[in-house]
Amino acid sequence: MIRNVLQTIGGIEVYPIISLLMFFGLFATVLIWFFRVDISHVKTMASIPLEDAQSDENGK
């Protein structure tokens, strides 16, 4: 089955290479970001759910 499929798609050999490169690229990018990100910014982001907007009783 696999031989039939591979024989009929031109340039199929490049598919796994493309997927490997994309895979590697995405993870390398995320890793670079992971180690270079500004920690204070990360702390701010982590607390966003806890920072509620100020209640406005007069707004009613």
Binding site: F23, L26, F27, V30, L31, W33, F34, V37, V42, K43, M45, A46, S47, P49, L50
Partner: peptide
């Protein structure tokens, strides 16, 4: 959103959550 709210704690690791997101959807 809801676990930090209910526990009143910030997300344990925001960096991990970003890696989690990109890796998961990919």
């Amino acid at each position: 959103y809801f676990i930090p709210k209910a526990a009143n704690r910030p997300v344990f690791s925001y960096r991990l959550s970003i890696v989690h997101f990109w890796a998961l959807i990919f």
